[in-house]
Design a protein around this nucleic acid. Sequence first.
DNA 1: CTGTTAGCGCTTTCAT
DNA 2: ATGAAAGCGCTAACAG
Lengths: 352, 352
Amino acid sequence: MLPAMAPSPKRRPPESLAPGVDTPGRAVTLRDVAKVAGVSAITVSRALSRPDLVTPATLERVREVVSRTGYVPNVLAGSLKSRRSRIVAAVFPQITTTLFVDTIQALTDRLRQDGYQVLLGLSAYGEREDELVAGILGRRPDALFLTGIRHSPAMRRQVLASRIPVVEAWDLSPSPIDMLVGFSHEAAGAAMARHLLSRGHREIGLAWADDERALVRRQGFLAALAEAGVRPVAECRLEAPSSFHLGREGLARLLASGKRLRAIACSSDNLAQGAIAEALDRGMAIPGDLAVMGFGDLEFAAHTTPALSTIGIDKAAIGRLAAEALLERLAGREGPAAAIDVGFEVLARAST
Amino acid sequence: MLPAMAPSPKRRPPESLAPGVDTPGRAVTLRDVAKVAGVSAITVSRALSRPDLVTPATLERVREVVSRTGYVPNVLAGSLKSRRSRIVAAVFPQITTTLFVDTIQALTDRLRQDGYQVLLGLSAYGEREDELVAGILGRRPDALFLTGIRHSPAMRRQVLASRIPVVEAWDLSPSPIDMLVGFSHEAAGAAMARHLLSRGHREIGLAWADDERALVRRQGFLAALAEAGVRPVAECRLEAPSSFHLGREGLARLLASGKRLRAIACSSDNLAQGAIAEALDRGMAIPGDLAVMGFGDLEFAAHTTPALSTIGIDKAAIGRLAAEALLERLAGREGPAAAIDVGFEVLARAST
DNA sequence: CTGTTAGCGCTTTCAT
DNA sequence: ATGAAAGCGCTAACAG
């Protein structure tokens, strides 16, 4: 995989396009188009954004000049004046796990239908979310999508001060900044535990990543176990972000503890898959010798050959519903209730 | 997974933040800060962007007012004047396959180090790439990342006219718009074929998605087979985007053809995994009864229990190298040679 | 339906 | 080291 230079030293020529108007070096502007078309700037502006306000003849002429000159409206200038950027900023922790991609795609698709573009912010690896958001707000997005509900007080203040519609997603909270689309991680954790209990499992180990939402699920999980008088036989904490590899390691460490283990609960399907691979390598039967319970990444889980049980989240719905909530507000309507619970499903495979 | 309204009708209060300056309804501006700090607007601007040009005392005072008022610079206005948006636009076909996420992450990470943000454009599902790009160019990005090398002539012209640095990625081409970071899909396809041939396979079937780059790989694949005097025994074309499910279907259809099949080549690891699942369900041994060859999505392939052979791409390197090429140009330097070949690796598992 | 005027909030340029 | 003037390219508001 050695990077190598290919022999293609092509440089762009300093092309002078835009025939019909002479713009030495700079881009074609609205005024250039207006001049050539013999109308005023505002007429060109209207021809492009509100064509119904312009005579067909004028419209025709303007369009001809626009396409001939290759005019591309400067959205920055327009946004500055109109105070609408038609940008929705979306902040995700990272995208290397496949967990968020469906949400991003659905969000993007839905917003584009209404003419909005998504400015994606990734707060992974050290960049603090509040710094990222501060930078993003400077771009004057019309709305904001945030992942999660825990934010620094300073950021919360700044976001509120920006007065744009906000959706926090993937989570529920009694005190959202504005709107909310998610599900209860505590309930999801509890559902994982109850499922294992309902299958008769009592010797349960945990392989759990150390991220914020995962830890909430863990509380729900442990509480539901405790309710049944069960305590996990062993637990292994893993660093976020979780991965296939860490899942292997998680099970290995649990088994090394020497405790008898009949089921393993993993904070993500990612981990669960790793655990399954490790178990198979050790000659264990799934779910005969070891039941595996995962969480969240449906397609990912679907690729596992020995099936695991898991919690299914409609990730695309989160993106779509968030987009729609924001769009409602952007359209001046009151929008949906502040909180939308998208819920989750327990997906149980035979005898797991 | 029934969406339900939660009882949390919280509305944001019309908070009036920004103590120390009275801005009725509108956001705090540079001039507001200047007024309060008792300096001119330009001094505030300098205090924020070139602090070395300002007296420590002034700097201190400005900073105090900035943080007290919660001033967030309007980047739109700054960009309009300075003609630098510090945005790099990146266009990908879609992100629901995991194929591109590492590239996006690496691109984003590297660009952020130099203060650039990524505007992500997804050209999936019908929206034509050139329309998307036209919209994006209106935001005056400082640079452009494109996936692939086939673009409409109109788009090519428009991109050239914008005079910003451009990287086309994932592919090589003799006539790039500007710079290029990728690998030869034809060579990759040929490598797949040669690998199977080297393992003695002659009864080879194809399950191939119908996307642009995949079809180039197919040509390379078939050419390499032909060189060895081999023709595929059967072929199944599948609609893009490829998926696990389509992989299952692909193998099923190939087997239904009744031809004797000892190896299957898939245009993506995604498909390969589906094919494996289907084979296992039918009681076939992998690779004993059927060798499986995939392409591209390393981590994905790593999760397969019966190993497949595949072509490994360093997807993160593509993002990182593309970012660096663009940054070089943005810094006014000449940048790297026009084309960077990141190459690929044949990852062979035992006896596949 | 079309035009004029003004100014969005910032940074460039030139002056002090 | 700081400031004044000008204007980036566009659209809101009002006028005709």
